[in-house]
Computed example of a mutant assay.
Amino acid sequence: MTLDDLRVFVAVCRTGSLSGVARELGCTQSAVSQHVKRLERETGVTLLERRPRGTVPTAAGRILYEAAADGITGLDRALRTLDDLANGAGGSVRVGTGGATLRHFMAEAIVGFRRRNPRLSLEFRTETSSRRCFDALLANTLDLAWITIGAPVPGIEQRPVVDLPWVLAVRADDPLADRSTVDAADLTDLRLVRLPPNSLSGARLDAAFTELGVRVASDTSVADWDTALLLTELGLGPTVVPAVPGLRVPGDGPLRLVPVPALPALPVGWAVRRWDALTPLARAFADTVAATCTEQSTIVRRQAVS
């Protein structure tokens, strides 16, 4: 039994695909199978089960997976720390995020944190969904991931940072622009620039609309909140987006943000493998982002109702 055997086995359990792991490692599927078979010979039990939709660990396999995954995470963290000591580096923090996330949630924190830790290596990796963030965390290619908080995920700890209220963005000449708030009923039959339904924030918004009996139409959808605001500014229709920290809409500009208090706030925050396994630098970075987000979110709420 080798460390490589365990790494491959953990990867197969995580992805549910021998061929997927082979592509990831740049080897053959047969080579991946050999790693698993060696573990099965030494343990004397069957560790994986083939199913129509992929490969899953058996009951014995789950026991080994949980122990190996935790052990590999700790070992990789120790190896990174030793590498920092050997090379005289200031350490590193690997963060899963996107461009809009950096702009609205992390920009101020990054500047201050780097100033306090000038030798720190900050590595940002763009992920297209919370699911991909979770996979990267489980594979130990990320320390932290910024996500929309959702249902519990095995092997992942989620920590809410801030609840984002929803606002209706309209052009300044729209009849709703001068409202102090918008009722849910006022949204019915609007043709909105919509968030994608396969995103967690879009799904949350659609679920809230359904619960409130709000029927909206749309012939335009976008992948992120900033693009939705831009298309509204260009006249393609109003949009409903979270009032994110760092969002600035000048009072004499083309847009107005009107709070929609009936919609439940959207919780966002950090996902990690294990909080107690984070390096001190990663934990400090997460805390710095949380503190600045809380402060900026308070400013945005006041701005939205003024």
Rank of each mutant, 00 (worst) to 15 (best):
R41I: 03
A68S: 15
P259T: 08
R41A: 09
G237N: 03
I149M: 10
A262L: 07
V161C: 04
G90F: 05
T294F: 00
L236Y: 09
D183E: 11
V300I: 06
D206G: 14
G16R: 13
D252R: 03
G237E: 01
G74F: 02
I63S: 08
D173L: 01
A207V: 03
V258N: 03
D143N: 11
E123T: 15
L25P: 06
R283S: 11
D173W: 00
L230H: 06
L39A: 05
S33F: 09
V244N: 06
V167P: 00
L82R: 12
G235V: 07
T181D: 07
V300G: 02
A86K: 11
A22H: 07
R41P: 00
D186W: 02
T126P: 04
K37P: 02
R119D: 15
R41F: 02
P196R: 15
G269P: 02
C13I: 07
G112V: 04
A243V: 03
F9C: 12
A243N: 07
G99L: 12
T97W: 05
G91D: 08
T188A: 13
L138H: 12
P242Y: 05
T46H: 10
L212V: 07
P245R: 09
A290E: 11
V244R: 10
P280R: 05
R256W: 02
D206M: 12
A223L: 08
P165A: 04
D5K: 09
I149R: 01
R248Y: 09
V162E: 14
V305A: 11
A78I: 06
A136Y: 05
D186P: 01
V300N: 00
P238N: 04
E24F: 09
V244C: 09
T55R: 09
D70I: 04
N87T: 15
T148Q: 10
V12N: 12
I72S: 08
R171W: 00
V111A: 15
S30I: 14
E40G: 08
D186R: 04
D76W: 06
T294D: 13
A223C: 00
R125M: 10
A60K: 06
S180V: 08
E40N: 08
R125K: 11
G251C: 01
E108R: 15
T220H: 12
Q303C: 03
L48F: 11
V8F: 03
A78S: 14
A11F: 10
A151F: 00
S121C: 13
D226G: 05
V241P: 00
T220P: 02
R204H: 15
E157P: 00
S199Y: 10
S92R: 13
A86T: 08
W225G: 03
C133V: 13
L190G: 12
V111S: 13
P160G: 07
L230Q: 10
P245S: 14
L25G: 06
